[in-house]
Amino acid sequence: MAILVLAEHDNASLKLDTAKVVSAATAIGGDVHVLVAGSHVGAVVASAQALSGVSKVLVADNAAYEAQMAENLSKLIVNVASDYDYVLAAASSVGKDTLPCVAALLDVAQISEVVDVVSADTFVRPIYAGSALATVQSLDDKKVMTVRTSAFDAAGNDGSAEAVNIDFVAEAKTVFVSQTLTESERPELGSAGVIVSGGRGMGSGENFAILEALADKLTAAVGASRAAVDAGYVPNDLQVGQTGKIVAPDLYIAVGISGAIQHLAGMKDSKVIVAINKDPEAPIFQVADYGLEADLFDAIPELTQSL
């Protein structure tokens, strides 16, 4: 069996999610290859070559792939798909955008957000906002899957895969215009070991400053519930939950978050969950390892000062 993993990167560095998808691929078994598509991706290729369990890195280094648009990537993947039994990607914005196109072009069903590998054709994925797990079997000749990376450990870095260039250049009618990036010195939300998240209880975007002060003390990422994002307190790239980012840090501190099922679906796999809320009936306390019933505007500054 041959497995193709789509690399997640920013054209300069390989994201941790790729190493976690490689772990899922090795759990399936077979020859694992990584596809790096982008522009001036030499450093990314070197990181992919070092991933444990990877035997080959396919390199599509061309300006056409710099923005990593689904229209281009899907055609590139389909071009090499004849050599593979599986196509895997992280359940990220890139993976969720690209792999449905790949599945449609290959005329197969996609399996989304895999959290466990039972066998070569049977996988486990969450349903009903993560409140239940479904075991699904695919009889398709080619299996196209996104992987929930929070469910897998990252592959090691003791590999020495060969790199092979691909000359195919996909042409699409979609044209990349621009992007707006939020820059922060804090850890990336999806890979952070500690996350401090705020909800509607924060009251305003300005009040998130007290969470940022705590996050800086803990070298943590800052997250938010959908309610806080919808209220305009913070940008949507900080959203944790079913329609945001799925995270599984070592420590998750939920501040002023009630605990709607959509939010719990995005963070309940955290190793330790701490909830701070003045409402003793808040559902977040049901999943928290530690709970503090208190006014966050008193508790957070006090906690920050004590660190």
Rank of each mutant, 00 (worst) to 15 (best):
V78Y: 02
A43V: 09
E162G: 13
M1E: 10
D107L: 10
Y290V: 12
A248F: 07
A215H: 03
T219V: 06
A48P: 07
F297H: 07
L88D: 00
G156Q: 07
E183R: 15
L238M: 13
R148L: 02
G291Y: 14
S191F: 08
E113N: 13
A19H: 02
V115Q: 02
A24P: 01
V5C: 06
A254M: 12
I210A: 00
E281I: 04
L16Q: 11
F168K: 09
E8D: 14
D158N: 14
D121V: 04
G199Q: 10
L73M: 06
A231I: 08
S306M: 08
V57I: 06
K75R: 15
H33V: 06
A231E: 08
V287E: 04
A209G: 12
T146W: 00
L88R: 02
V274L: 14
E293N: 13
L133V: 07
G193Y: 08
G259A: 08
N236H: 15
P187R: 06
M145K: 03
N207K: 13
A104T: 08
L106T: 13
L105K: 14
A170H: 09
V272A: 12
D250E: 14
E162I: 12
N11T: 05
A129G: 02
A89V: 05
G232F: 05
I28R: 01
E162A: 15
G205S: 13
V41T: 15
K142F: 01
I257R: 09
V255E: 04
H33F: 03
Y65Q: 07
R125C: 02
K173C: 06
G259K: 11
V54G: 00
F176D: 08
K142T: 13
N157Q: 13
G223Y: 03
V57T: 03
L16W: 03
D298Y: 11
A48V: 07
P301D: 11
A43K: 12
I261G: 05
E212H: 11
A89M: 10
V57G: 00
S306E: 03
G95Y: 02
V57W: 00
N62H: 15
